[in-house]
Design a protein around this nucleic acid. Structure first.
Lengths: 289, 289
DNA sequence: CACGGTCTTGTAAGTTTGCTACAAACTGAA
DNA sequence: TTCAGTTTGTAGCAAACTTACAAGACCGTG
């Protein structure tokens, strides 16, 4: 999409830290300490700030995979626009409101950006094929993933076939046991290792349903699924860091629903428009106005 | 946060379109047609591509509020990094998978960026004060906002007091009727105009609860709330455009939960860490390992 | 329709900025 | 201590960006 090989520059700098010469390292420290400020600097100013010569700056830029200082500055600007990823920063008790709010937005946005770059488009395409041709859809998930499942269920007008979300282990098992070959069975689990989900998915497969697994990375669930959608979410393990994986999963569900809708005929779209209009009337409390 | 006054450059270009001279307009067209390409161009190349002279490019940059071409290029790079906002682009049936996926991520990310810039930090601060000192919390919401309410309820370990989410009109009314002065009553509604929500909130206020309204903009709900958190979400009305407002609302809930946790003592944090460890054990099906 | 003023646009010169070749300094091993 | 290899800085150059100025287009008015 943008920013050539290997993600945001700030991340790449950290990756290459130990391969840098000593004076280049000084440059890296300055950049990491105040990325936003460095974006505004000229080559000479950055050299001054880092206490090195100008060519060193250029060599630094090349070392971290940029094509000269120009390219470096642009990539740094893009990295800064997205924010500092959770893997590079931690929420601390002494942060003020603005800082905390900024960090959490940064985490959320960089996480979505990461998924945007790593999403398997082919898997999405196959999932859409399945969802568009099945005759009913079951979503399952527990905890935070259960929220995603319920959100998906709410989008049934877009999918155009009966949808149900099960967020209880027993109900999930029941739904799997009654699924059919024309059922699309969407299992959502960030870890992809929750045993009850795995058991349920096995049953669904035995029944001949097509299983779409939405999960955070390579995992047993991914193995068990007919179609595995990996949503790598950059969650770090810090206590304060909120569970960001949901966000990306919700976006993926949005994508699936939207693309299925795109497959349907114009008449379906008209229905949706009518529905939206009526819904807004109902909200304001004047039915059939 | 970044990109001086008035949001991303791409948006600003559109806003200033009618104030541009004819040849500057040619530049704007080239930029809007292929923003990603223009980021890589030099001033001379852009002049060539637009069929105008180099100074015209500089004047164009100044016209849209940038300090010279340098600054323009950096701001454009940042704008491109976030993506093209929903207000500037539409999802079309003939788009291929990569395009559709890209657009939906763009919409989501730019929407979060917009909220990041416009969030009222003072309101957040007051909401945190309330949530950290109350003795119980009720979240209410309908439809997509109901999903957000349930997500908030799942975060009760962070809030440290009993939390409940009501997504049914009657239950909401019941919860409001039994609320107390030490209740924090969080009403979530994107429109802020749903009548049943408004009625319920009035009851909660009569009972002396502190009402925190999370809503998409100035609205009756914002008026009725003790603390109004406006989450302006840039939703456009296009049928295909998924409801993005949820995402930003979820992030806001994350922020509230995280900041309340930050207020609590170290022992609370230890509890959370222990809980996370145990949870992951339970998932993999080996209790008390 | 001609004229004058104003606004718009391009030409050309000037200044800053980033890049590269080369030489000096440093480091480590024999 | 000396030598080879690596690292770093100096100096000059080429390119890019900016500014001043003049030519041209546009519009209203006489």
């Amino acid at each position: 999409m943008n920013g050539p090989a290997g993600g945001p520059v700030l991340v790449r700098i950290n990756q290459h830290l130990d391969q840098l010469r000593r004076s280049e390292r000084k440059v890296a420290d300055v950049v990491l300490a105040n990325p936003r400020g460095v974006v505004q600097m000229t080559l000479a100013e950055l050299a001054e700030a880092a206490g090195v010569s100008q060519p060193t700056i250029v060599r630094f830029a090349n070392a971290i995979g940029c094509d000269g200082f120009h390219d470096f500055r642009i990539q740094l600007a893009q990295s800064v626009a997205l924010g500092v990823p959770a893997t590079q920063s931690v929420i601390e008790a002494q942060d003020d409101t603005a800082t905390t709010v900024g960090k959490i937005f940064d985490f959320s946005i960089t996480s979505l950006d990461h998924v945007r770059r790593h999403l398997d488009l082919d898997a999405i395409g196959r999932a859409v094929d399945t969802l568009a041709s099945c005759s009913n859809i079951v979503f399952i998930g527990l905890g935070a993933s259960g929220i995603v499942a319920m959100d998906a269920e709410q989008k049934f007008p877009l999918f155009g076939v009966p949808c149900s979300a099960q967020i209880d282990t027993h109900q999930q098992f029941l739904a799997a046991s009654t699924s059919r070959p024309d059922t699309a069975f969407v299992a959502i689990s960030n870890t992809g290792r929750t045993v009850s989900i795995l058991d349920t998915v096995r049953v669904a497969r035995e029944r001949g349903a097509t299983v779409i697994g939405i999960t955070g990375g390579p995992s047993p669930l991914a193995e068990l699924s007919n179609i595995a959608i990996l949503v790598e979410s950059l969650d770090n393990t810090d206590v304060y860091t909120p569970t960001i994986s949901r966000l990306a999963q919700l976006v993926v569900v949005d994508i699936l629903a939207t693309m299925v809708l795109l497959r349907r005929e114009e008449s379906a779209l008209e229905d949706i428009r009518t529905m939206k209009t009526r819904l807004s009337r109902m909200r304001s409390g004047m039915p059939r106005a």
